[in-house]
Design a protein around this nucleic acid. Structure first.
Lengths: 350, 350
DNA sequence: TTTCAACACGAAAACGTTTGCGTTGCCCAA
DNA sequence: TTGGGCAACGCAAACGTTTTCGTGTTGAAA
């Protein structure tokens, strides 16, 4: 077992100084053609690669970006990571991930673990607990220490950073309008409690769409789910709440669900109640994930383009990291990029 | 914007030496109670945290582990990551991920990016292309450089490292036996080409189970899919191949699919051909993912316990990392841990 | 023969830590 | 008065790089 070789060892073997080796490898003109050849050959033979940690220390930048997301077993988030990793790698960066598990404490801990030099900047989506507590000091502190953050999907305005979001309101309107134009007269929504920013916005889009069409939203048609992490118990609860929704509103002929799981669960429940999809009930969901594509019937959904969001977020972050080098102190101005959603029509609507 | 504070700055402010500060913070007895208090107060005030990179360089260990997986938008792999991250964090490690995208080149590049000091060890699952080419030099080289690897799920025997796998043969047998005991007489398998190690093993389990029950496997009942990354075109191809399978074997009453997607696609195709699930066709799949749980009918599946695999892999790796410290040169002996699968019965079987 | 540039290379600092050891200053015993 | 010992602290090396600034040697011009 040969340990990784260092400049020092090469220098010793070849009886030159460390600096000579370093320069030779970087093709400095200071070094004679002869020694350059010799050093490079030797380095190649022993498969020399500069130690990343040493470089990070010297350059005061690690070329890695930290991702903090609530969970990873989740189509949208993993798509985003794919996008981040794609452009990060292309631009010479690595990606280190931390999971908050929707917990405030884990979010804070994770950020502290990474903010001590391990990374150059963050890309993150806020945990539900943090959104609920509205405690954002950890974000503000890391920004204050000169470490840029890019937020995506679940964002809050009061934090000075770049953001990448989808237009949830508009996307929800598209969904509801599809239902309207397909003949639905009584459209219900299955959404989350309001502290989840995207849930709130999608609810808002639902309401706006209804009003645009002179349809009056009724409180009883709005089902707000308290969704923590989905355990099996929660699933049962979800089903019974949805069943309640159908039973107390017999006239429902359209459902807008803010995520796939709510949609397939609604379909499942509806079927046990004798409703046919899409004949007597049409369904549109948010997030074009694996369930939408492959369940039966396949779901008409609003696609969020998670990968694109990730790519954009990474580009924004890296741009800012590499801009800082040049003009350190131009006044900072932050960008909020909106990724367009689009409706993908499948079998759950007419 | 205040940059992160360092020992040097604290030392300067307090007019002591760097070493005094360092020792004071670590509660060394060399330092008087007085200065200790003073330094610690100051450090707390300015929220001092030791720079991770500097520590990594000094200690020659980074306390981060590298994960290389084929893709992340994948229930099983993301479950594994969850498990890894869980125990890694608990034991003070970070996790940095690279995606090979099932490509040999990206796998190699990614490993090189990380093997230069950024991490202490790898946890990985081999890409399909690598399995196909059977070129494992990059694994052997990093192991030779003293960097331990733990492989999971897709492994090859010839590499000296710890491994965490499920018993694919046994799991497949469980699946097929369930079909047999539920009355299936003609069981087909939808699997991958043989170079995918887990596909091959599951096929083997299928064959063994049939033989155990004196049922004679026919070549026409074995559909081996060439599965690259799933694009929409591939999905069409998959459907038509499955349709072909049904049409040329009218007697099929049971399907064992080596992954969820094959299973739901088979069900979809079967339905268009007028088959009822589970009445006239029963289906069992591998991987207990989101499709199995939430599609209709829900799928009877063999659960792989991805999170457990991840947890075990992380424990193995960290154990080895921290063992190395003590007894550097005991002869190395590697472990292969088998995580038990279990069959989860749902609606797609009787 | 002297001088000076070009050439080829080495020394050392710096990035931020930790730690073994040397160095003070002081007190007390001999 | 001397010396020993202890308490409290600083120096410097080390981790592996890169880079600035010397420094020595050569050859050629004056």
């Amino acid at each position: 077992m040969k340990r990784k070789i260092t400049l020092k060892q090469i220098a010793k073997e070849l009886d030159v100084s460390i600096s000579t080796v370093s320069k030779a490898l970087r093709n400095s003109v200071e070094i004679s053609e002869d020694t350059r050849q010799k050093v490079q050959a030797f380095a190649k033979l022993y498969n020399y690669r500069p130690n990343n940690i040493a470089l990070s220390l010297k350059n005061r930048k690690t070329k890695t970006i930290g991702i903090i997301i609530p969970e990873i077993v989740h189509y949208f988030f993993s798509k985003v990571i794919t996008g981040i990793e794609l452009v990060a790698n292309k631009r010479g960066y690595n990606v280190i991930v931390g999971l908050s598990n929707e917990s405030f404490d884990k979010e804070v801990i994770n950020m502290q673990m990474l903010a001590n030099g391990s990374i150059d900047g963050f890309i993150l989506s806020i945990s539900k607990e943090t959104l609920q507590q509205q405690d954002y000091h950890h974000f503000l502190e890391t920004i204050n220490q000169g470490m840029p953050i890019v937020m995506f999907d679940r964002v809050v305005n009061e934090i000075p950073c770049d953001k990448v979001i989808v237009d949830d309101v508009k996307g929800a309107k598209k969904a509801v309008e599809k239902l309207v134009s397909s003949g639905c007269k009584n459209i219900a929504i299955i959404t989350t409690k309001d502290y989840v920013s995207v849930g709130k916005l999608r609810t808002q889009g639902y309401l706006e769409a209804l009003e645009d069409h002179k349809m009056h939203p009724e409180a009883s048609m709005i089902l707000k789910i308290e969704d923590k992490l989905l355990s099996d118990d929660d699933l049962d609860k979800l089903e019974s709440e949805i069943e309640q929704l159908f039973k107390s509103n017999k006239s429902i002929d359209g459902i807008f669900a803010v995520n796939e799981l709510y949609a397939v669960t609604a379909i499942k429940v509806a079927r046990t109640l004798g409703l046919e999809i899409p004949k007597s009930l049409q369904v549109v969901s948010f997030t074009d994930g694996v369930l939408s594509k492959h369940s039966t019937p396949s779901l008409t959904t609003v696609s969020q383009h998670g990968q694109e969001i990730g790519e954009k977020a990474a580009d924004l972050l890296i741009n800012r990291l590499e801009m800082d080098e040049d003009n350190e102190e131009e006044e900072e101005t932050f960008e909020t990029v909106v990724i367009e959603t689009n409706l993908i029509e499948r079998e759950s609507t007419k």
